[in-house]
């Protein structure tokens, strides 16, 4: 298990716990989407995985390291990097490559390894050609990919992203999601992704739905989104593909709630119609 929480509790103000005894285990290499309405405790949970917040009760382990052990702080933060919602507020330097270098510089990585890491990270997120640009001249999606590069230059085994696509346009959103998926697939980096867009959770191996500081649902995207009423009662929705299948089902047509992508949905519908025609 790369990430593990044991009865994790956290309160910003005493007596009003935001997280109420969470037990979550995340194996290495898993792609996990975390859903939940505003105030359900998603971001608070995420901030525990690189010791920005420390539990007020229970324990959090990153690769077996207790996050409350101050001596391991940098080790933990290197192991699990974090990307935030607003791309503008996490870029430190005025030149792209200098910003990507910021983390490894803090770790004291010497040249030429530092240079190699920066170049590699920029290439991984597809921003190498923008290495000498000023970040404020880039689009939101590009800035967010720079932020991701800044994390992977620290060589983490896990990356936690707090609504990284919320402020982006469709193209920026797609580029960022593709980058995340690629990191997971090719570099075997564990991914934790918070999002308000249900469609984005379809790329994940696993979906955790949070509600009032507890885990309400935990399963594969198909298992989770099949529970349409439950999701709606939690203030969430399901992807439109699932909604379509659900509507068909309620009209007595055959439906496949596992057909969560538009391609799969179209294939399935084509098949049932052809079967009917014979």
């Amino acid at each position: 298990m790369i990430l593990k929480t044991e009865n994790l509790e956290y309160s910003y103000t005493e007596g009003k716990p935001t997280l109420k005894g969470l037990n979550i285990e995340i194996p290495e290499g898993q792609y996990v989407a975390i859903l939940g309405h505003n105030g359900s405790g998603k971001s608070t949970l995420l901030k525990h995985f690189n010791a920005i917040l420390l539990p007020t009760g229970g324990k959090v382990y990153v690769s077996g390291m207790d996050t409350s052990n101050e001596e391991l702080l940098f080790e933990i933060r290197t192991r699990c990097g974090m990307v935030f919602q607003n791309p503008d507020n996490q870029i430190v330097a005025t030149i792209t490559e200098e910003d990507v270098a910021f983390g490894p510089e803090n770790l004291g990585v010497p040249n030429p390894e530092l240079r190699a890491r920066v170049d590699e990270a920029l290439k991984t997120v597809g921003m190498y050609e923008f290495r000498s640009h000023a970040p404020h001249m880039l689009s939101g999606g590009q800035k967010q990919r720079i932020a991701i590069a800044g994390i992977i230059a620290m060589r983490p085994s896990c990356i936690a992203l707090d609504e990284p696509t919320a402020m982006l346009d469709p193209i920026g959103r797609r580029d960022v999601l593709d980058t995340i998926a690629k990191l997971n697939r090719e570099e075997n980096i564990t991914v934790l992704l918070i999002t308000h867009h249900m469609e984005e959770a379809l790329f994940a191996d696993r979906v955790i739905v949070m509600d009032e500081g507890t885990v309400a649902l935990d399963g594969t995207p198909c298992e989770i989104f099949a529970q349409v009423e439950k999701m709606e009662s939690l203030g969430l929705t399901v992807p439109n593909t699932v909604k379509l299948m659900h509507t068909l089902q309620s009209r007595g047509l055959p439906a496949d709630l596992n057909a969560v992508t538009t391609d799969k949905a179209a294939d399935f519908i084509a098949r049932i119609l052809e079967d009917k025609i014979g």
Partner: peptide
């Protein structure tokens, strides 16, 4: 034009391509 289209329109388009 760099725009996303509603999922329903996307599926309808894919069905049309399959000759439905």
């Amino acid at each position: 034009a760099g725009l996303t289209i509603p999922v329903a329109a996307e599926i309808a388009g894919k069905l049309a391509k399959k000759g439905i």
